[in-house]
């Protein structure tokens, strides 16, 4: 089974988010980058399936060279090889086109990724790839197992419940917890990752359909109003009469 796992290189959750150039660009200064936490679920589940059923796991990133340390980290966790499409990921549509081009060329049985990236929070790419390739996309999935060699069984979250879906290979799925327990690389993994193949390919044309023009930050909270625990009931009155949310 050939599995393609798409990963994004994103600012660590604890990063301070700032913008430069008149709020037109994200300020990378001092920001630590990590594998998108949602993508880690997809990656680990792919490796688990490979260990159980055989096959290979290829990691794909659409991004610039500064993503390579995290691509190597994915290899250290257990992916076999990696592809980086050398391009600035302009928007979801652009990224989906790049993934589709790589996926068509490689003939993968399964294309997995996280349900969204924690930087642009799009929740778009997986369904776009499914549509571009004309194969099912099951998102967001929190369970993924093989029924037999050609059929997978997934459970996906819908508002207020879940759906159980069985699809034939190939398909696209996006992952969310509790699909698996994400792994961290061990020493042996880190050593072998250095020699695993990482291929860099150029973007295949592809257009963006949106344009990020400006960023802003939410207004700062004015500070917490503390109520004494003995008078906790006062809070309910404040919520009704002052905050007007009850």
């Amino acid at each position: 089974m050939k599995i393609l796992v798409c990963i994004s290189n994103v600012p660590d959750t604890t990063s301070k988010i700032n913008f430069t150039g008149d709020n037109k660009e994200f300020d990378k200064n001092g920001v630590q980058y990590v594998i998108n936490p949602w993508d880690e679920y997809a990656l680990t589940r792919a490796i688990e399936l490979k260990e159980a059923k055989g096959g290979s796991v290829t990691v794909l990133n659409v991004g610039e060279a500064d993503a390579e340390p995290n691509i190597r980290k994915a290899l250290a966790i257990g992916a076999d090889d990696a592809i980086r499409v050398n391009a600035h990921p302009k928007d979801a549509f652009f990224v989906a086109q790049q993934i589709t081009a790589v996926a068509k060329e490689g003939g993968y049985d399964m294309i997995l990724m996280g349900k969204e990236s924690i930087d642009y929070n799009g929740f778009q790419v997986h369904n776009m790839v499914g549509e571009m390739m004309g194969i099912p996309s099951v998102t967001p999935a929190f369970k993924l197992d093989m029924v037999d060699d050609s059929t997978a069984r997934l459970e996906r979250e819908i508002e207020g419940g879940k759906e159980v879906v069985e699809v034939k290979l190939p398909f696209v799925a996006s992952a969310q917890q509790p699909m698996c327990e994400p792994r961290i690389p061990n020493m042996r993994g880190i050593m072998t990752a250095r020699t695993k193949p990482l291929k860099v390919v150029e973007a295949t044309g592809g257009e963006a359909k949106s344009e990020y023009v400006n960023y802003s930050k939410p207004e700062k909270k004015s500070g917490v109003k503390l109520i004494e625990p003995e008078n906790a009931g006062e809070l309910i009155k404040l919520l009704r009469n002052e905050a007007k949310v009850l």
Binding site: E211, V213, Y215, K217
Partner: peptide, 14 residues
Amino acid sequence: GVFSGKAFADVNLT
């Protein structure tokens, strides 16, 4: 909303 609620982005839909 972007950056998990830490910022907003203005986006032109072209």
